[in-house]
Protein backbone atom coordinates (compact mmCIF):
# COMPACT_ATOMS: atom_id res chain seq x y z
CA UNK A 1 0.00 0.00 0.00
CA UNK A 2 2.77 2.40 0.97
CA UNK A 3 4.60 1.56 -2.22
CA UNK A 4 1.47 2.39 -4.25
CA UNK A 5 1.08 5.70 -2.41
CA UNK A 6 4.70 6.53 -3.04
CA UNK A 7 4.32 5.81 -6.71
CA UNK A 8 1.27 8.06 -6.99
CA UNK A 9 3.03 10.74 -5.02
CA UNK A 10 6.08 10.59 -7.24
CA UNK A 11 4.03 10.82 -10.41
CA UNK A 12 1.97 13.67 -8.98
CA UNK A 13 5.06 15.61 -8.03
CA UNK A 14 6.59 15.03 -11.45
CA UNK A 15 3.45 16.26 -13.21
CA UNK A 16 3.18 19.25 -10.88
CA UNK A 17 6.74 20.11 -11.75
CA UNK A 18 6.10 19.77 -15.49
CA UNK A 19 2.96 21.88 -15.24
CA UNK A 20 4.92 24.53 -13.40
CA UNK A 21 7.63 24.48 -16.01
CA UNK A 22 5.15 24.69 -18.88
CA UNK A 23 3.38 27.77 -17.52
CA UNK A 24 6.63 29.68 -17.49
CA UNK A 25 5.80 30.80 -21.06
CA UNK A 26 2.87 32.77 -19.65
CA UNK A 27 4.23 34.06 -16.40
CA UNK A 28 4.46 37.64 -17.64
CA UNK A 29 1.32 39.42 -16.56
CA UNK A 30 -1.32 39.78 -19.25
CA UNK A 31 0.01 36.95 -21.38
CA UNK A 32 -1.83 33.76 -22.13
CA UNK A 33 -0.39 30.30 -22.37
CA UNK A 34 -0.68 29.41 -26.05
CA UNK A 35 0.42 27.12 -28.82
CA UNK A 36 2.86 24.30 -28.15
CA UNK A 37 3.30 25.27 -24.51
CA UNK A 38 -0.44 25.08 -23.91
CA UNK A 39 -0.62 21.69 -25.63
CA UNK A 40 2.20 20.46 -23.42
CA UNK A 41 0.51 21.93 -20.36
CA UNK A 42 -2.78 20.16 -21.20
CA UNK A 43 -0.96 16.93 -21.91
CA UNK A 44 0.55 17.01 -18.44
CA UNK A 45 -2.54 18.40 -16.73
CA UNK A 46 -4.84 15.62 -17.94
CA UNK A 47 -3.28 12.80 -15.86
CA UNK A 48 -2.43 15.28 -13.11
CA UNK A 49 -6.12 16.07 -12.67
CA UNK A 50 -6.85 12.40 -11.99
CA UNK A 51 -3.86 12.08 -9.68
CA UNK A 52 -4.98 15.17 -7.79
CA UNK A 53 -8.31 13.50 -7.08
CA UNK A 54 -6.49 10.45 -5.71
CA UNK A 55 -4.06 12.63 -3.78
CA UNK A 56 -6.86 14.68 -2.20
CA UNK A 57 -9.11 11.74 -1.29
CA UNK A 58 -6.41 9.33 -0.22
CA UNK A 59 -3.54 11.37 1.23
CA UNK A 60 -0.37 9.70 2.41
CA UNK A 61 -0.43 9.09 6.17
CA UNK A 62 2.63 11.25 6.76
CA UNK A 63 1.18 14.27 4.91
CA UNK A 64 1.25 17.40 7.04
CA UNK A 65 -1.47 20.05 7.23
CA UNK A 66 0.68 22.23 4.98
CA UNK A 67 1.03 19.44 2.43
CA UNK A 68 -2.71 18.75 2.47
CA UNK A 69 -3.37 22.48 2.09
CA UNK A 70 -1.04 22.60 -0.91
CA UNK A 71 -2.90 19.77 -2.67
CA UNK A 72 -6.22 21.38 -1.91
CA UNK A 73 -5.05 24.74 -3.29
CA UNK A 74 -3.90 22.96 -6.43
CA UNK A 75 -7.37 21.47 -6.79
CA UNK A 76 -8.94 24.92 -6.37
CA UNK A 77 -6.52 26.27 -8.97
CA UNK A 78 -7.78 23.60 -11.35
CA UNK A 79 -11.32 24.75 -10.60
CA UNK A 80 -10.45 28.38 -11.35
CA UNK A 81 -9.43 27.69 -14.91
CA UNK A 82 -12.76 26.00 -15.55
CA UNK A 83 -14.59 29.32 -15.12
CA UNK A 84 -13.43 30.76 -18.47
CA UNK A 85 -13.22 27.30 -20.02
CA UNK A 86 -16.92 26.72 -19.42
CA UNK A 87 -17.79 30.23 -20.59
CA UNK A 88 -18.92 31.46 -17.18
CA UNK A 89 -17.14 34.78 -17.60
CA UNK A 90 -16.52 37.30 -20.32
CA UNK A 91 -13.52 37.01 -22.56
CA UNK A 92 -12.14 40.22 -21.08
CA UNK A 93 -12.30 38.86 -17.51
CA UNK A 94 -11.15 35.35 -18.33
CA UNK A 95 -7.53 36.38 -18.07
CA UNK A 96 -8.07 37.15 -14.40
CA UNK A 97 -9.22 33.57 -13.79
CA UNK A 98 -6.45 32.08 -15.90
CA UNK A 99 -3.87 34.14 -14.06
CA UNK A 100 -5.46 33.15 -10.76
CA UNK A 101 -5.11 29.52 -11.82
CA UNK A 102 -1.42 30.05 -12.52
CA UNK A 103 -0.52 32.01 -9.42
CA UNK A 104 -2.51 29.78 -7.05
CA UNK A 105 -0.86 26.70 -8.54
CA UNK A 106 2.52 28.29 -8.02
CA UNK A 107 1.65 29.16 -4.44
CA UNK A 108 0.59 25.55 -3.87
CA UNK A 109 3.86 24.28 -5.28
CA UNK A 110 5.80 26.64 -2.99
CA UNK A 111 3.84 25.47 0.07
CA UNK A 112 4.37 21.86 -0.99
CA UNK A 113 8.09 22.55 -1.31
CA UNK A 114 8.21 24.11 2.16
CA UNK A 115 6.38 21.17 3.74
CA UNK A 116 8.84 18.76 2.15
CA UNK A 117 11.69 20.85 3.52
CA UNK A 118 10.33 20.97 7.06
CA UNK A 119 9.14 17.37 7.01
CA UNK A 120 10.45 15.78 10.23
CA UNK A 121 12.61 12.76 9.55
Amino acid sequence: MIQRYSSIASWTLLLVLLCTVSISAALASGEELRGNWLQFHLLVATPLAALLVIRCWWPRPETTIGGQLAWWLMAIAMGLVLIPMLGWTSSENSLVWVEGHGWLSLLAVVILGCTVKIKPN
Binding site: L42, A45, T46, A49, A50, L52, V53, R55, C56, W57, P59, I65, Q68, L69, W71, W72, M74, A75, I76, M78, G79, V81, L82, M85, L86
Partner: peptide, 20 residues
Amino acid sequence: AKIYFSACAFLAISGGLIGL
Protein backbone atom coordinates in the same frame (compact mmCIF):
# COMPACT_ATOMS: atom_id res chain seq x y z
CA ALA B 1 -12.36 17.44 -21.60
CA LYS B 2 -14.66 20.01 -20.01
CA ILE B 3 -16.65 17.25 -18.31
CA TYR B 4 -13.48 15.42 -17.29
CA PHE B 5 -11.76 18.46 -15.76
CA SER B 6 -14.99 19.63 -14.10
CA ALA B 7 -15.47 16.23 -12.46
CA CYS B 8 -11.83 16.09 -11.38
CA ALA B 9 -11.97 19.63 -9.98
CA PHE B 10 -15.16 18.92 -8.03
CA LEU B 11 -13.84 15.66 -6.61
CA ALA B 12 -10.39 17.03 -5.83
CA ILE B 13 -11.69 20.19 -4.12
CA SER B 14 -14.24 18.31 -2.02
CA GLY B 15 -11.82 15.48 -1.22
CA GLY B 16 -9.05 17.94 -0.42
CA LEU B 17 -11.32 19.91 1.90
CA ILE B 18 -12.42 16.79 3.75
CA GLY B 19 -8.81 15.60 3.93
CA LEU B 20 -7.66 18.96 5.25
